[in-house]
Amino acid sequence: MSSTTTTTTPKPLPFIYQFGAGAIAGVSEILVMYPLDVVKTRQQLATTDAYKGTINCIKKIVREEGFSRLYKGIAAPILMEAPKRATKFAANDEWGKFYRKQFGVTSMTPSLAILTGATAGATESFVVVPFELIKIRLQDKTTKFNGMLDVIKDIVTKNGPLGLYKGMESTLWRHIWWNAGYFGVIHQVRSIMPKPKSSSEKTLIDLTCGSIGGTFGTMLNTPFDVVKSRIQAGSTRYKWTYPSLVVVAKEEGIGALYKGFVPKVLRLGPGGGILLVVYTAAIEFFRTIHEGK
Rank of each mutant, 00 (worst) to 15 (best):
S2W: 03
S2V: 12
S3R: 14
T4L: 08
T8R: 15
F15I: 11
Y17V: 00
Q18M: 12
E29D: 11
Y34V: 02
D37T: 14
V38Y: 07
K40W: 10
L45C: 04
D49N: 15
T54E: 00
I61G: 11
V62M: 01
E64W: 08
G66M: 06
F67Y: 11
A75H: 06
M80G: 15
A86L: 09
T87R: 08
K88D: 12
E94I: 13
W95I: 15
Y99T: 14
R100S: 00
Q102P: 04
Q102G: 02
Q102I: 07
F103T: 06
F103V: 04
F103S: 02
L112T: 03
L115R: 13
L115A: 15
A118P: 02
F126V: 10
V127S: 06
F131I: 04
L133G: 04
K135F: 13
K141C: 00
K144D: 07
F145G: 10
F145H: 12
N146E: 12
G147S: 07
D150A: 11
D154S: 15
D154W: 07
T157D: 14
T157V: 06
K158P: 02
K158W: 05
K166V: 00
M168D: 01
T171V: 02
L172T: 10
H175C: 11
W178I: 08
W178V: 02
G181F: 08
Y182I: 01
G184N: 07
I186F: 03
Q188R: 14
P196Y: 06
P196I: 07
P196C: 09
K197F: 01
S198G: 01
S200R: 11
K202N: 13
D206A: 11
I212Y: 03
I212G: 09
G217Q: 09
L220V: 11
D225E: 13
R230D: 03
Q232R: 09
S244Q: 10
I254W: 13
G255R: 12
L257I: 08
L257M: 06
K259H: 12
V265A: 11
L266I: 10
L268P: 01
G273H: 08
I274A: 09
L276P: 07
V278K: 06
E291Y: 13
K293P: 08
